[in-house]
Amino acid sequence: MGFEYFRPGSVEEAVSLLFEHGPQMNVLAGGTDLLVKIKHKAIHVSKVMDITGIDDLRILNEDNQDLIIGAAITQNEIVRHPIVAQKYTALKEGAGQLGSRQVRNLATVVGNICNASPSAETAPALLVYEAKVTAVSCRDSREIAIKDFFAGPGKNSLAPGELVTKLSLPAEPARSGSAYIKLSPRRAMDTAVVGVAAYVRLDSAGKCTICRIAMGAVAPTPVRAFQAEQAVIGAELTREVLAEAGRIAAEEVRPISDIRASADYRRQMVEVITRRVLETAWRRAEGSNK
């Protein structure tokens, strides 16, 4: 493919390479998106920096009860991690349905969101957990709320010279639950026609205190369904509440027609999948004693 290959050993080295080479330098983590683009000649790339050799980016643990996911952590590492399985189910379900097993052993969660595909499998989950993205440059470091991270199809909101080093997911208290459902005609190795994640936190009486819903492949970026969430907060689990949330979510989205599905179908599926994923998240919240 003929590009210059850099493999920094530290974050400092990585950000100084980014500074030095400017926009010519492309960050490669798993490579499963970047290399396909290069092979398809969708982009021409002269310099690539592989960040998976940086030990600091290989963190995956709980820090002050927040879950920290380093930029070199792969989808399958997420899927197999016991804390993720226990507390961040939607993320496990999103990561577990991305590409093939082979791709999941290469692709990273951070890479998935930096690539900013509207259908990114892990994005809805990170949106409902209100993850924070840490971006580091030569000069400083900042945190970006995940909802502000996506800027358009294939576009993120990083400034030139910035490198995402990690994601932080807030600690999950008891009586909370989450889920992600991906809809695709093929049951493996497919792109989401619609993907929806939901997060629900309940009070002791079983009323919803926090509800977050996020969707993929229905707008130029992965998006929250803020209005649908409002219909759920304060409510108890009923068929009507779920149906109403689905209906509102379907009104909030701006899907397109493409090779995979029509806009109409996507909109209908947002309604169905939102209802289903919300119910699953709710049941999990009821059953959780974390």
Binding site: M1, T32, V103, N105, L106
Partner: peptide, 10 residues
């Protein structure tokens, strides 16, 4: 298991 077609030698 990984896809060797998506794995640079680096």
């Amino acid at each position: 298991p990984i896809n060797s077609c998506l794995t640079p030698m680096g």
